[in-house]
């Protein structure tokens, strides 16, 4: 280890707020878009289904990196509006993961037994109440585990903001790198990876708590306590 240790750590930590802001902003946008597009995928209207399908397939089908470059480098050329890097990052993270989240929402809503819908009809609840009061509260509990994986993917994707110089952890590290001797590189990368690991664990802890609360609310047995490491389901990306 070297005398640079303190400087390296403090520089990397300067990037943490941006990484967290990008993650939280991205997650917020993801949730909103996933709910809107996911419910739109189930709409009775063909037009609504078509447009949500175009959004979902469009953002899942093109690379997140390309989306980032497009938004950050092409859009300004098109409309003459330069977007703040962090804002561009949140937008791309949210749009991209919202498209994946839409499929999660659609699947979770469809997984609620049809009998629940019929029970609500028999009580003369209207379409909005049926969805808001009966179906969604149950579907949300099903969404939590896959959303946990999705949010960790999103956290990992914040590293891509390095390419648009958003001043997050990865970029801070790469700015330090050229001036440092080999031995210090170990510190840079170890600290970076540990920060991401801790943030991933934090996301998982929050999501597991929500899962337990959700299970209690539905009168189910809470899921068994598992290791905090994510154990993504196969095919979940």
């Amino acid at each position: 280890m070297s005398d640079n240790l303190g400087r390296i750590i403090s520089t990397l930590l300067e990037g943490v707020p941006v990484t967290i802001q990008a993650t939280l902003g991205g997650i917020a946008l993801t949730i909103v878009l996933a709910l809107i597009a996911g419910l739109a995928l189930l709409s009775k209207s063909r037009t609504v289904r078509f447009f949500s399908r175009v959004y979902v397939e469009g953002f899942r089908g093109t690379s997140e990196m390309v989306q980032l470059f497009w938004l950050y480098f092409v859009l300004p050329a098109l409309v003459g509006l330069q977007i703040v890097p962090l804002f561009a990052g949140v937008l791309v993270l949210g749009l991209n993961h919202g498209a994946y989240g839409a499929e999660i929402v659609r699947g979770a809503v469809q997984s609620v037994p049809k009998a629940q819908h019929e029970g609500a009809v028999a009580l003369n609840l209207g379409p909005v109440d049926r969805m808001r009061r009966v179906i969604l509260p149950q579907a949300v509990v099903e969404m939590l585990p896959p959303f946990n994986n999705l949010f960790i993917q999103l956290l990992k994707s914040t590293a891509l903001l390095y390419f648009i110089s958003a001043q997050e952890i990865t970029q801070k590290g790469e700015e330090l790198r050229p001036a440092l001797p080999m031995g210090d590189l170990t510190v840079i990368y170890a600290v970076e990876l540990i920060i991401y690991l801790l943030l991933a664990i934090a996301i998982t802890i929050v999501m597991r708590a929500l899962e337990r609360a959700g299970a209690r609310r539905l009168g189910r047995k809470p899921p068994p306590r598992r290791k905090v490491f994510s154990s993504a389901t196969a095919g979940g990306v």
């Binding site: 009998a115 019929e118 028999a122 009580l123 009061r133 009966v134 509260p137 149950q138 539905l218 189910r220």
Partner: peptide
């Protein structure tokens, strides 16, 4: 018209009282 189902179809996200009050309040 009201209906009672073979499989009850109670709403698991509501406690017993709310299962009974929900529709009178909302509908």
């Amino acid at each position: 018209i009201g209906m009672v189902f073979q499989q009850f179809n109670l709403f698991p996200n509501m406690r017993v009282l709310q299962n009974v009050t929900e529709a009178p309040v909302r509908a």
